[in-house]
Design a binder for these strands. Structure first.
Lengths: 340, 340
DNA sequence: TTGTAGGCGTTATCAT
DNA sequence: ATGATAACGCCTACAA
């Protein structure tokens, strides 16, 4: 029966060696003979020794954990699966290194800053992951001032202020989407975007303007708070125009779903008169009727890569900012050429 | 400019007092005069002192965190929002106490056990939350053997082996569902359940058998892996019977959604010929066409209560097992009396 | 009321 | 190669 409090000096006593010999043996470090190492390992195993994380952290300054602050309100969390998939990817990759994910939630930007400052000051985590970077985000400046705390930003490198970042290929995605609409013959396309303050919205906005200008396609854009209600409202507004767009791209899936309903209610048939495309793919897109064409990205893999990069940063390795391969478009029933 | 490494003795030196005086002052403990306390607090604040979490943990045996192991595979995580909502509730409640949620993932029951044993042995967390309890779950025994580690089980108290638990009112929910179907005039009802090994499936099975027997309603049940594919398959099988059920209850929403499609494909109109009800409510149920009647529970609040109970356990308070109020049924388009 | 000293478990620095 | 010993930062008897 293993007692739960076996210390390194207990093992040392039992094995008849010093505690430093035990430490070397258990950490696979030189400075101890093979015979001693074997004996120590055997004894430690039999006694059920496990390293005390607090003591290790105190002496090492290594907590074996990375920090993530959740800022989404619960309404969004109960609709979107992005964060959960990201966490799944993160923890899966961290698991292999024995790392944990330390999660805190915050109800405001200020309280998130407080948590981050606390982490920096107390060393409660070995590294930090930042998501939903905004334009002029104070978090970027905070970590720029504290290079001792490894940090990875999930955003375009142009917004990372020189810090390491991991981004989706928004430019490539915009190209894919606009090209697809253009090939289907759509001349007026619109986009219902997320909040303007988010960095990735900004990047998408630029990319879309460029791509549509290139192909000489008419383009308009509304910004929303990602809610189905706003998705519906903007869709109705666009469809009421004398020359409504014939293809609309939505920055998330719930707005696209709301749009399908709105179009139906207005008697605009999808996809014959209107193509609806979602920037985010999810189960919702495939079960919707009609099912929704969507840009699919592998969020779990994204999370794994983020964890890998952050672990490398913690290891002191050189880590270059990275952009994921362009997502792929999953063709479903909600999009097609104009009919009639 | 605050340096990030301010220790308690730095503050003591600056304030011209001893380190113990500083400790007392900062922790609001007696043993120091009001004047000294004020001075210490002022100096500590000016120097930007923050307690080093590792040192605190080492001397206190308190890590200010609770542990949660994610075992769901990524496929399930990308479809269900339950876990994310639970995490949102947990972290929201923990936030107030300055606690964090420590998340690990595991790919097997064995690896989850390893993580839990590690937590118990190293004291990496102050308490543990266990979800998806199975019949004869080894985790229950593990924590029964380690009463020094506070633990809360999200399951019926009958499966908790004497440990503290927080449960949904499955009995009440079953009563609600069966009663509703019976009042609509359904005489043959079926249930497409989750995996038989889960404790809550077991509890639901029993409750359903009792409730249907009570009202003399014919009842049959299939167990699945929660996937839409199995939801579809079981639905088709049931609808092919010479005397098919006229109401089917699904243990989760994605199966209910798949069922709507399956019924449509077989020419069985919903709800005129078949009522479809989901045990779990989510955004999916409201956007489905037809929208799906569902049992709605507030998972975020559930998570908050779980965190509260676990914090109380950590505080050494007496915590009684608790069962949430029965969920409520949200009436939508997929259910109704038999027509024709 | 105050300060000193010892312990928490580990790692790192010295001697031997 | 090995074994004392000193950090790491905090808390808490205990002594002054």
């Amino acid at each position: 029966m293993l007692k739960s409090k076996v210390t390194i000096s207990d093992v040392a006593k039992a094995a008849g060696v010093s505690s430093s010999a035990v430490s070397y043996a258990l950490n696979d470090k030189p400075g101890v003979s093979a015979a001693t190492r074997d004996k120590v390992l055997k004894v430690a195993d039999k006694m059920g020794w496990k390293p005390n994380s607090a003591a290790k952290a105190l002496s090492n300054a290594s907590t074996q954990s990375i920090g993530l602050v959740l800022t989404y309100d619960t309404h969004v969390l109960s609709v979107e699966t992005y964060t959960m998939e990201l966490i799944a990817g993160l923890t899966a990759e961290l698991e292999a290194e024995g790392y944990s994910l330390l999660v805190r939630s915050s109800h405001s930007q200020q309280s998130e800053m407080d948590v981050l400052k606390e982490w920096i000051a107390t060393g409660a985590v070995d590294g930090v992951l930042l998501m939903n970077i905004e334009l002029g985000d104070p978090r970027v400046e905070l970590f720029a001032e504290h290079p001792e705390m490894p940090v990875l930003l999930l955003c375009d490198s142009t917004m990372a202020g020189g810090l390491a970042s991991l981004a989706d290929d928004e430019q490539g995605a915009a190209h894919l989407l606009v090209d697809y609409c253009h090939e289907l013959g759509h001349q007026r396309i619109a986009r219902i975007a997320g909040p303007e303050r988010y960095g990735h919205t900004f990047i998408r906005d630029n990319a879309f303007m460029e791509e549509t200008a290139e192909l000489d396609v008419q383009y308009s854009c509304f910004h929303t708070n990602y809610s189905p209600a706003e998705g519906q409202r903007c869709t109705e507004r666009l469809l009421s125009l004398s020359k409504p767009p014939t293809a609309i791209i939505y920055d998330n899936d719930v707005m696209a779903l709301a749009a399908v309903k709105a179009a139906n209610a207005m008697g605009v048939s999808v996809p014959d008169r209107l193509s609806i495309i979602s920037w985010d793919d999810s189960f919702l897109c495939s079960v919707s009727a009609p099912s929704i064409t969507a840009l699919s990205r592998d969020v779990v893999t994204h999370g794994k890569r983020a964890a890998r990069m952050l672990l490398d940063l913690i290891d002191g390795k050189q880590v270059d900012s990275y952009t994921e391969e362009a997502s792929e478009l999953v063709f479903r029933e909600s999009s097609g050429p104009l009919v009639g």
